[in-house]
């Protein structure tokens, strides 16, 4: 009576139904929570950040102000997560092996080599204007990593290894990470708290100009460097992994 096909189908149906039920429950809870908050907290108190961030940190982009100043400790933790996942990927995959030399076609390589310098403008802009416009260290760093991957894909891993050696990637990642942790100590030495910004004597500057926001641009730069180096070295590990000893029979 019960064929395996029907059984699998029924199992999947039940699983799908349960997942849907669970997620609908989540929606109900979140909506109720929002209603509860609207009843208990007056609307003026809802935004502790927007009103004060320019005066206190000098950063126009409030999200950057939160990420790099108010909750900079989160950012440190997050950069550490990236660092750890690079280390884990390296531990799992081993040293990058012999790089392959597959490249894209000649025409696309020509075009890319003309355009590539232009491509670097965007991430650098995003990083340096993190406190002025949308974006910041993370977004810029990831797009830098994507550019490094693009170089690897377009011109072959061997060329990529020559232009940006893996050792340099690793060293710049460690350097940026140590710089990130070290900047926090400036706050302690100035008699303030760890990762303090204006309270530690960094100049706030005129809001809206490039040199404003105290330590925020520097943190953006370090985070960008760290994220770019880390993520692209994950790619290098993944792409350089040798798959040669796959057993032929055991599938």
């Amino acid at each position: 009576m019960e064929s395996p096909v029907i059984r699998v189908f029924l199992t999947r149906l039940t699983a799908g139904f349960l997942c849907l039920l669970l997620s609908l429950g989540f929606v109900v809870l979140l909506l109720d929570a929002g209603r509860h908050r609207a009843q208990t907290i007056p609307t003026q108190m809802e935004e502790p950040y927007t009103a004060r961030s320019v005066a206190e940190t000098g950063s126009i982009n409030v999200v950057t102000a939160i990420l790099m100043d108010y909750r900079a400790f989160d950012t440190l933790g997050e950069a550490t997560v990236i660092f750890a996942s690079v280390a884990v990927a390296a531990a799992i995959l081993g040293k990058p092996g012999s790089p392959s030399n597959r490249t894209m076609g000649l025409l696309s390589r020509r075009q890319l080599s003309a355009l590539l310098p232009l491509f670097f403008i965007f991430p650098l802009f995003v990083i340096f204007h993190g406190h002025l416009s949308p974006g910041g260290g993370f977004q810029g760093g990831v797009s830098l990593a994507v550019l490094v991957i693009l170089i690897h894909v377009a011109f072959g891993d061997r060329f990529g290894e020559e232009v940006i050696p893996h050792r340099i990637l690793a060293l710049s990642e460690y350097g940026a990470a140590i710089g990130l942790v070290g900047i926090g100590f400036v706050g302690i030495f100035q008699g303030s708290a760890y990762l303090a910004n204006v309270a530690a004597g960094f100049p706030r500057g005129t809001a809206g100009t490039l040199a404003s926001g105290g330590v925020i641009p520097l943190l953006n730069l370090l985070v960008g460097m760290k994220v770019a180096a880390g993520l692209s070295s994950i790619y290098v590990h993944l792409a350089g992994h040798e798959a040669e000893n796959v057993p032929e029979k055991r599938r």
Partner: peptide, 15 residues
């Protein structure tokens, strides 16, 4: 959510 949008574009669609 402009910042999140940028991050999602770069990480989700790119990396």
């Amino acid at each position: 959510a402009v910042d999140v949008a940028m991050a999602e574009a770069v990480i989700g669609a790119g990396l």
